[in-house]
Computed example of a mutant assay.
Amino acid sequence: MLLLIRFVVKIPEGMAPEQVAPLLCAGVTVYSPLNHFGLMGSGLRGGILGLGGVGHMGVKIAKAMGHHVTVISSSDKKKVEALEHLGADDYLVSSDAEGMQKAADSLDYIIDTVPVFHPLEPYLSLLKLDGKLILTGVINTPLQFVTPMVMLGRKSITGSFIGSMKETEEMLNFCKEKNLTSMIEVVKMDYVNTAMERLEKNDVRYRFVVDVAGSKLDQ
Rank of each mutant, 00 (worst) to 15 (best):
residue 42 S to A: 08
residue 197 E to N: 03
residue 64 A to V: 11
residue 122 P to N: 00
residue 25 C to S: 10
residue 25 C to Y: 11
residue 172 L to M: 01
residue 46 G to Q: 14
residue 133 L to V: 09
residue 136 T to N: 02
residue 65 M to R: 12
residue 158 T to I: 06
residue 4 L to R: 14
residue 144 Q to F: 06
residue 57 M to A: 04
residue 216 K to Q: 15
residue 218 D to N: 11
residue 44 L to D: 08
residue 116 V to E: 09
residue 100 M to Y: 11
residue 55 G to W: 13
residue 153 G to Y: 03
residue 68 H to E: 13
residue 43 G to K: 03
residue 11 I to A: 11
residue 214 G to K: 00
residue 14 G to C: 04
residue 17 P to T: 04
residue 174 F to V: 08
residue 202 N to K: 13
residue 118 H to L: 02
residue 120 L to R: 07
residue 40 M to S: 04
residue 54 V to M: 01
residue 44 L to M: 10
residue 213 A to T: 09
residue 111 I to Q: 05
residue 27 G to I: 12
residue 179 N to E: 15
residue 3 L to N: 12
residue 93 V to K: 01
residue 9 V to H: 00
residue 208 F to I: 07
residue 76 D to Y: 10
residue 194 T to K: 09
residue 156 S to T: 15
residue 98 E to Y: 02
residue 189 M to N: 00
residue 10 K to Q: 13
residue 46 G to I: 07
residue 176 K to N: 15
residue 73 S to F: 02
residue 183 M to P: 08
residue 9 V to Y: 02
residue 214 G to E: 05
residue 143 L to G: 12
residue 211 D to F: 13
residue 139 I to K: 11
residue 143 L to K: 10
residue 132 K to V: 09
residue 141 T to N: 06
residue 90 D to K: 06
residue 32 S to E: 05
residue 105 D to W: 02
residue 173 N to V: 00
residue 127 L to N: 03
residue 36 H to E: 14
residue 195 A to W: 03
residue 86 L to T: 04
residue 213 A to L: 15
residue 71 V to E: 08
residue 162 I to V: 15
residue 63 K to G: 01
residue 202 N to E: 14
residue 96 D to I: 05
residue 184 I to P: 07
residue 87 G to H: 12
residue 166 K to P: 01
residue 121 E to D: 15
residue 192 V to I: 10
residue 210 V to A: 12
residue 92 L to V: 05
residue 94 S to P: 07
residue 5 I to C: 09
residue 179 N to H: 13
residue 157 I to G: 12
residue 139 I to N: 12
residue 72 I to L: 13
residue 42 S to I: 01
residue 14 G to Q: 10
residue 186 V to T: 15
residue 181 T to D: 08
residue 210 V to K: 10
residue 121 E to M: 07
residue 65 M to N: 11
residue 53 G to P: 03
residue 63 K to P: 06
residue 117 F to G: 02
residue 9 V to G: 01
residue 188 K to C: 05
residue 25 C to V: 13
residue 158 T to K: 09
residue 183 M to I: 10
residue 45 R to T: 04
residue 141 T to Y: 06
residue 8 V to Y: 00
residue 41 G to Y: 05
residue 178 K to E: 11
residue 108 D to T: 01
residue 125 S to M: 08
residue 198 R to E: 06
residue 18 E to Q: 05
residue 113 T to I: 02
residue 63 K to L: 08
residue 34 L to T: 07
residue 101 Q to W: 07
residue 194 T to F: 02
residue 218 D to K: 13
residue 4 L to C: 05
residue 70 T to E: 06
residue 148 P to M: 03
residue 120 L to G: 10
residue 42 S to K: 12
residue 47 G to E: 04
residue 190 D to F: 02
residue 115 P to W: 03
residue 219 Q to G: 05
residue 198 R to F: 06
residue 157 I to C: 10
residue 162 I to D: 06
residue 202 N to Q: 14
residue 108 D to V: 01
residue 150 V to H: 01
residue 37 F to R: 00
residue 49 L to P: 02
residue 171 M to K: 01
